[in-house]
């Protein structure tokens, strides 16, 4: 353990524990998932950073969306995100979730992921190298330190707007709202 950080550990142990044990659920939709096996296995060994892949979203705290998001996968991304316990952080990988990337004029691909679920960090590149993933994760640490990785809080407070966007693009959603929607009661 880094001795310089002892003060932080005593001040806020829960936050430090969240920082250094990010349990990841990878959303293996697009081409970005090809960067994940080298980054979690021996070559780049993501466990040095406390990142470990888990089996289900119920155990996860970090959601990495690797690659383009089509309409059908958006549906399961929303379901996965809503199943994760708080605090939860979202990082998107590659340029496609940012603005569509090379699928900018595709009829079936989401252009801006942050309109549908909150995204804490975006790693640009097509595809980003595993080093870029670690730079993104260390940047996420500083965001958690400064309480700026508050995507799940924004999702809670702006839920009606997010839900409206999701229903606008996907039609009627078959699951009930996660939080109460303003203006309905």
């Amino acid at each position: 353990m880094d001795r310089n950080q002892l003060k932080k550990w005593f001040q806020n142990p829960v936050k430090m524990a969240h920082k250094y044990s990010l349990h990841v659920v990878y959303f293996c939709t697009g081409c970005g998932i090809i960067e994940i096996p080298p980054s979690i296995t021996a070559r780049w060994d993501a466990e040095r950073f406390g990142i470990i892949p888990v089996a289900t979203p119920r155990q996860a705290s970090l959601f990495i969306i690797a690659g383009y998001v089509s309409l059908k996968t958006l549906r399961s991304i929303i379901r996965t995100y809503e199943q994760m316990p708080e605090p939860k952080f979202t990082v998107s990988l590659g340029s496609c979730p940012i603005n569509g990337g090379m699928y900018y004029d595709s009829y079936n691909t989401i252009k801006h992921l942050e309109k549908y679920i909150p995204v804490d960090g975006m790693i640009a590149g097509c595809m980003p190298r595993p080093e870029a993933i670690f730079v993104g994760v260390t940047h996420l640490w500083t965001l958690i330190d400064k309480d700026m990785a508050d995507g799940y809080k924004r999702y809670r407070s702006n839920y009606s707007a997010y839900r409206a966007n999701q229903e606008k693009i996907l039609g009627k959603l078959e699951w009930p709202p996660l939080f109460p929607i303003h203006g309905e009661e």
């Binding site: 801006h112 942050e114 309109k115 924004r154 702006n158 707007a161 997010y162 966007n165």
Partner: peptide
């Protein structure tokens, strides 16, 4: 897709 409003802007 262009007609979907941005949540973060609000």
């Amino acid at each position: 897709f262009g007609s979907v409003p941005s949540v973060e802007g609000e």
